[in-house]
Structures are given as C-alpha cells and as structure tokens.
C-alpha cells in the first residue's frame, strides 16, 4: 500500500467533504453554539480526522457516519423549526439569573452557575454592580444577556431630541485599485461620482488600496502609501525581526 498517497487522497476528499457539509449545515452551527452543537462539532471533526488518516478502516465507513450526522443535524433543525415543543427539548430555554438587582439562587443552582461566574459574565458586559441589573438571562448557547435597570440605560439621541440620520453601512467601492461596481449601484452612486471624489482627493485610482462610501455618503480613501512613522511601535527591545 502506498500509504502516503492514500492519506493524501483521503485527506483531500475529507477536506472538501467537510467543507461542503459545513456549508449545508449553515450558519446556525457557529452562531448558536449550544453544548449539543459543540459536542456535535467535535464528533464530526473526529470522524473526519479518522476518515483522512485511519488506514485500518475503510474511508467510506467514516463518510457514512459523517453523512448520518449531517442528516440528523438537518432533521433536528427541521423539527426545531416545525415544532416549538421539540425546539425547547433540543435547545432548552433562556433562564432568568437576576431580576431587579436580585440574584435568583434557585435558578443559578438549576443551571449550575456559581455567583462568581455570574459576576464575571456581568463584568464582561461592563456591569460592575449587581444593582445595575434589571434582568440577566442565561441563553441556551451559554452566554448571559443583560438588560440594565432603567437609570443605568445609556441615553439615546431621541431622549435628548437630537436629530439623527438613518443608520447605514460602510460600503466598500474600491479594493486594490479595482472598482466594485455592484456596491456603487447599491448606494445609488455612479462611476463619475466616484472618479470625481478621487480627483478631489488628488490621488490616482491605482494608488488606492481601499475606498468606501461612509454612512454619511462621503468617500473614505486609503492609499497603499501610508507615510506613517515608527512612533507608535510598542516593542520594548530589539527582537529577531
């Protein structure tokens, strides 16, 4: 047996099989990482590793196992969408950990979270006093969502009657000197508008590394030449590079 060749071929196939399967499973696997998703992901990875390198078993056996995991994941996703009862069985529900500044010990015990862990989670949300918490929920993916008490909520523009603009995204229109026409159209701009703005900035399009239309409809331009000094280098001593 040409072991190296067989491993290369099996690894090549495995790489693309998991790429295709991951795309089929979709974003849910990453965005909503429950304990089950985590274990499921590890198991799929372990099966894929065996498919690539375990020459004592047929690759097809591992492929079959991978496919079964994919089908079951699909099935659970589908059942979860169709039935809220099964969705609850699969993913559990958010649990209230704190309410009106009070820690709900009974619920903490139920989800096996210590007060120290809860305080750490609050600190990560920039909340350093339990009194500031209106509601703290443990989400099914293990994260804690916090709604501060009303006095601690940040002031909004509308509270102060400050005029505001509709929120928009920054849209990339030039990448490495190449115009992205699709994005220009998206922001209702044309090439002439873009070239006019570039001319005003006194740069050539070939010098532009990145340009984008900002939320306020102005053009941001970054050139390849940065002309930046070394005064912000945080390195303390001469290293290997």
């Amino acid at each position: 047996m040409q072991e190296s060749l067989v491993v290369i071929v099996r690894a090549f196939i495995t790489f693309f099989v998991i790429l295709i399967y991951a795309r089929l499973i979709g974003k849910q696997q990453i965005g909503n990482f429950t304990m089950f998703d985590y274990i499921n992901g590890i198991t799929i990875g372990s099966i894929a590793a065996a498919m690539a390198t375990d020459l004592t078993t047929k690759a097809m056996v591992h492929w079959l196992a991978l496919s079964v995991f994919l089908i079951l994941t699909f099935a659970l996703q589908w059942i979860g969408i169709k039935s809220s009862f099964w969705s609850k069985v699969q993913d559990s529900e958010p649990v209230v950990l704190m309410q009106n500044g009070k820690i709900l010990e009974h619920n903490l015990k139920k989800v096996r979270i210590t007060k120290n862990e809860l305080m750490a989670q609050l600190r990560q949300k920039n909340i350093f006093s339990p009194l500031e918490v209106g509601l703290a929920l443990l989400e099914p993916d293990g994260s804690v969502s916090v709604l501060p008490e009303s006095p601690y909520l940040p002031v909004q523009k509308k509270d102060l009657h400050i005029p505001y603009h509709i929120a928009r995204l920054t849209t990339e229109v030039i990448n490495d000197g190449k115009i992205i026409e699709q994005n220009l159209k998206q922001r209702n701009k044309n090439k002439e508008w873009l070239l006019d703005n570039i001319q005003k900035a006194e740069v050539d399009i070939s010098q532009i590394a990145f340009a984008a239309i900002l939320p306020n409809d102005t053009l941001y331009i970054d050139t390849f030449a940065d002309d930046v000094g070394d005064e912000n280098n945080v390195s303390d001593f001469q290293g290997p590079y």
Partner: peptide, 15 residues
C-alpha cells in the same frame, strides 16, 4: 490491482 483498490479497502486486508 492493489494500487487500484488501496483507496477503498482496509490496509489490513491488503496486508
């Protein structure tokens, strides 16, 4: 034949 089937069979069987 062994070169042909090596991708789909177990190493122990070939050995």
């Amino acid at each position: 034949i062994s070169k042909r089937v090596q991708f789909s069979v177990e190493r122990d069987d070939l050995e």
